[in-house]
C-alpha cells in the first residue's frame, strides 16, 4: 500500500513538472525541435534541470542497500547497443516531431479534457498494446 501511495505521489510531482515546465504544450516541444526556425530553447532547460537533480541524486540513492519501501532496485541491466534501440528511438522521434507529444505529457494531458489529446492517446496506447500482444 505504501508503494502505491509513493508511486501516486511521484506521478503527481512528475505531472506537475511536465505542466509547469511547458512540456505539456506541443507547440513548445515543436519549437524546441525547430532549430532552424522559431527555436524555443526552454526544453533544454527542462532536461537540464531534471538531469542536474537526477545526476546528483543517483550518486546517493544507488549507494543504498535497498529502496526504502521495496526489497531491491529494479534497474535496466542491458548495456548492448542494437538496431532495435536505435530504430525504436528514431520511430519515436519522428512521431514526437510530428505532433509534439511524448508519452508523459500525453498521459498527463488526459486530465485536461482536450479531444486531440485523446486521439493521440488512443493511437499511442493502442499501438503499445498491440506491440506487447505480438511481441510476447
Amino acid at each position: 500500500m505504501r508503494q502505491i501511495l509513493s508511486a501516486f505521489a511521484a506521478g503527481l510531482i512528475f505531472g506537475l513538472g511536465l505542466i509547469v515546465s511547458g512540456m505539456i504544450n506541443p507547440a513548445k516541444v515543436l519549437n524546441f525541435l525547430d532549430l532552424f526556425g522559431q527555436w524555443d530553447p526552454s526544453l533544454a532547460l527542462v532536461m537540464g534541470g531534471a538531469l542536474a537533480v537526477g545526476l546528483v541524486g543517483h550518486r546517493f540513492i544507488l549507494k543504498m542497500d535497498r529502496p526504502v519501501l521495496a526489497e531491491a532496485f529494479h534497474l535496466p541491466t542491458r548495456s548492448d547497443l542494437d538496431l532495435r534501440l536505435v530504430g525504436g528511438a528514431v520511430l519515436f522521434g519522428v512521431g514526437w516531431g510530428l505532433a509534439g507529444f511524448c508519452p508523459g505529457p500525453a498521459i498527463t494531458g488526459a486530465g485536461l479534457g482536450l479531444a486531440p489529446i485523446y486521439v493521440f492517446l488512443a493511437a499511442m496506447l493502442g499501438a503499445m498494446a498491440l506491440y506487447r500482444l505480438v511481441m510476447r
Binding site: F14, G17, G22, G48, V53
Partner: peptide, 9 residues
Amino acid sequence: GGALIGISA
C-alpha cells in the same frame, strides 16, 4: 518544472 521531474524520478 525540470527539477520537479528529477525529484519525482
